[in-house]
């Protein structure tokens, strides 16, 4: 179980000379920082900056630290920062097991076993060979979460991950996601429009102005 910490040191993002946001914050293990704000306020750009693929039209400054290590200039694939998008984005050409195996680091031992255990934990035991295209929305979201966890990240970013689910499923997924993240001791940043998301997350909330 990793106990890591995510720090944003005066991170600020600007688009064509216009300052969008500045965030200076620290997220401890198992904590969730929620960022709320209208569309166009730069929330998603902040996540892209932390994950390492902010489009070059944006000008960004400030440091991102995980466990005290500066990851600001690392390429995205070496940052060990997981990201859940609005859509589950399961790779459509791979089976469920293929999707999960893609996330597991090459050196780790028994991939089949890790996958089996993981699927059991999210209530989808025996789904290994299924085609992602045949899953329901809720099942897809759970696989996406499992895939993220199997990539053993040091921090997690959530980009309105529940916004496309219907209301009952949304509540279920919220509980599942935050329970899992807390249990793994991962620091997370959640970007959302939905006050209920922030309430369930239960951490610090930053509200951006337009």
């Amino acid at each position: 179980m990793s106990k890591s910490k995510l720090e944003l040191d005066k991170v600020s993002i600007a688009l064509s000379g216009k300052q969008l946001l500045t965030v200076d914050s620290s997220v401890g293990p198992g904590e969730v920082l929620t960022i709320m704000g209208p569309s166009g306020s730069g929330k998603s750009s902040l996540l892209a900056y932390i994950a390492g693929f902010l489009a070059p039209v944006f000008a960004a400054s400030g440091g991102v630290f995980v466990n005290g290590d500066d990851i600001t200039t690392l390429p995205a694939e070496r940052r060990r920062v997981g990201l859940l998008f609005q859509d589950p984005l399961l790779f459509p050409h791979l089976s469920i097991a293929g999707n999960l195996r893609f996330a597991i680091d090459d050196r780790s031992a028994d991939k089949a076993k890790l996958i089996r255990q993981g699927l059991d934990e999210v209530g989808l035991g025996g789904f290994e060979e299924r085609d992602p295209g045949t899953l329901s929305g809720g099942q897809e979201s759970r696989i996406a979460l499992l895939r993220l966890l199997l990539s053993s990240p040091n921090a997690v970013l959530l980009d309105e991950p529940f916004s496309k689910l219907d209301s009952q499923l949304r509540a279920e997924m919220r509980t599942l996601v935050f329970t899992k993240l807390r249990a793994s001791g991962l620091p997370s940043i959640l970007v959302t429009h939905d006050q209920a998301d922030a309430d369930t997350a239960g951490g610090e909330v930053i509200t951006l102005e337009h």
Binding site: E77, L89, F91
Partner: peptide, 26 residues
């Protein structure tokens, strides 16, 4: 969709891996 490659890299895939295993098949 650029997000396919972004997901791949947040899962730790090198550019080469995400090229051969994700973009080329897609």
């Amino acid at each position: 969709d650029p997000r396919w490659s972004q997901v791949a890299s947040t899962l730790g895939a090198s550019p080469l891996k995400s090229f051969w295993r994700i973009r080329i098949p897609l």
